[in-house]
């Protein structure tokens, strides 16, 4: 294996700047996509547990659609196809005037894709509570909306915290797909450094370690949150 090592590439300009910019975009894409995924995902997940059949069907259709198409293809559809299908003025606005089109496409594509997974976790979290709680809430005269607001969602939120942690990590990792539509996030920048310097191993090592640190930090923070909101008397699940 003949390879000329040079770790100093990582701290020399402009490459250090590239890596930091990449990290910045990774955080910005993942953060915004996560907010979107939570908002849409919890709504869709609740829809799937409602007594109303039409609401459940709508929720199921959303989940099946976004779960059964590769994320990469979804990004391409948002980026290349949607502007062509929209009415001309809107499509042209997206193509010509929308600032940061790669960024917003990545956020929406990744957010709506992840929402389907969040929805499934939310549904499972609510259904795990058991029918007795719903009956008890109804028996005391709470409306359906009140029983979701005060009983089901607060309990479900604690149930889904561990699976949602791993979904959040998926968002961070999946944000790397944004490079396919030209957004140079962390992975994209390390690839960029590789082609500019032929020091791929060093660049990939830096990016990989950054992901590991990011992931570990997220896990530690969310474990602390889990302990904070744990219900007294109930053992935290291993």
């Amino acid at each position: 294996m003949s390879y000329r090592w040079d770790w100093s590439v990582l701290v020399s300009e402009p490459y250090l700047g590239w890596l930091l910019a990449g990290l910045g975009w990774t955080l910005l894409v993942a953060g915004a996509a996560w907010v979107l995924a939570l908002a849409v995902g919890v709504t869709v997940g609740v829809l799937r547990t409602l007594p109303n059949r039409a609401a459940r069907t709508l929720g199921t259709a959303y989940v099946e659609t976004f779960r059964n198409i590769p994320l990469l293809l979804q990004l391409f559809v948002w980026y290349f196809v949607l502007p062509e299908l929209l009415p001309a003025p809107i499509g042209n606005w997206i193509k010509r005037e929308l600032p940061l089109p790669e960024y917003w496409t990545a956020v929406i594509g990744l957010g709506l894709f992840t929402a389907a997974r969040v929805a499934e976790q939310t549904r499972a979290g609510i259904q795990a509570i058991g029918r007795g709680q719903t009956l008890a809430a109804a028996a005391s005269g709470l409306t359906l909306a009140q029983s979701y607001r005060y009983i089901l969602l607060p309990i479900a939120a604690r149930n889904v915290l561990p699976p949602l942690t791993s979904e959040f990590l998926n968002v961070v990792k999946n944000s790397s797909l944004a490079l396919t539509i030209g957004l140079l996030e962390l992975t994209g920048q390390s690839r960029q450094i590789e082609s500019a310097t032929f020091h791929g191993i060093e660049a990939f090592t830096a990016a990989t370690l950054t992901y590991v640190v990011l992931t570990t930090a997220v896990i530690l923070v969310l474990r602390a949150v889990e302990r904070l909101v744990a219900i007294p008397g109930l053992m935290a699940r291993a």
């Binding site: 294996m1 992975t187 990939f204």
Partner: peptide, 24 residues
């Protein structure tokens, strides 16, 4: 745990770069 904290694309890049280097 290590593999699960890295994006798949990153792993694909790694092996695209490494496998030829290792095999020569």
């Amino acid at each position: 745990n290590g593999l699960r904290s890295v994006p798949l694309i990153m792993v694909i890049f790694w092996f695209y770069l490494l496998v030829p280097l290792v095999i020569g």
